[in-house]
Simulated assay, not measured.
Amino acid sequence: MDEAQFQDLVDRHGEDLALWPAALRADAEALLEHSDRARSILDAAARLRQTLTSGPKVRAPAGLAARIAALADDDETDKPKSSDKASPRLRAGS
């Protein structure tokens, strides 16, 4: 495993190696023993998680999901039906 692969795995599995699949964990631990870059990647991921989880909880405004769903429904009703998709020439000649 190289540092680029390690970065990809940290991005996908997180900074807690105990949560990684065992087969990957062994290679990651071996890389960490001799790679300053890999240790830096792991440290940055841990700091990022700490930053994201230590701040105040942000909640969406009440009713936001319902408003989004309503807008999506409106968008669907504005689309032409498949019978309306025929070219004007074909419809005129029918």
Rank of each mutant, 00 (worst) to 15 (best):
1 M>I: 11
3 E>A: 04
3 E>Q: 00
3 E>W: 01
4 A>Y: 02
4 A>Q: 08
6 F>C: 02
6 F>M: 00
6 F>N: 01
7 Q>P: 01
7 Q>K: 03
7 Q>F: 00
8 D>L: 09
10 V>P: 00
10 V>S: 00
11 D>E: 12
12 R>G: 05
13 H>N: 01
13 H>W: 01
13 H>P: 00
13 H>S: 02
14 G>D: 01
17 L>W: 10
17 L>I: 08
18 A>F: 01
18 A>V: 07
19 L>S: 12
20 W>Q: 03
21 P>I: 10
23 A>E: 08
24 L>T: 02
24 L>N: 06
24 L>G: 12
26 A>G: 06
26 A>Y: 03
28 A>G: 08
30 A>R: 15
31 L>A: 06
33 E>P: 02
33 E>M: 14
33 E>H: 12
33 E>S: 14
35 S>G: 01
36 D>L: 12
36 D>C: 04
37 R>E: 13
37 R>C: 01
39 R>Q: 11
40 S>W: 06
42 L>M: 09
44 A>C: 09
44 A>P: 06
48 L>F: 10
48 L>Q: 13
50 Q>I: 04
52 L>D: 09
55 G>C: 08
58 V>L: 15
58 V>E: 15
59 R>S: 14
60 A>M: 12
60 A>D: 09
61 P>E: 12
61 P>L: 12
62 A>N: 03
62 A>Q: 11
65 A>S: 12
65 A>F: 07
66 A>D: 13
66 A>K: 13
67 R>H: 10
67 R>P: 02
68 I>R: 12
68 I>P: 04
68 I>N: 04
69 A>Y: 03
69 A>P: 04
69 A>Q: 14
73 D>A: 14
74 D>I: 02
74 D>S: 13
74 D>H: 11
74 D>T: 11
78 D>G: 09
79 K>Q: 13
80 P>D: 08
80 P>K: 09
80 P>I: 03
80 P>L: 05
80 P>E: 08
81 K>W: 02
82 S>R: 08
82 S>V: 07
84 D>H: 10
84 D>K: 08
85 K>Q: 14
86 A>Q: 14
86 A>E: 14
86 A>S: 15
86 A>I: 11
89 R>C: 05
89 R>Y: 12
90 L>A: 15
93 G>K: 14
93 G>Y: 06
93 G>P: 00
94 S>M: 10
94 S>C: 08
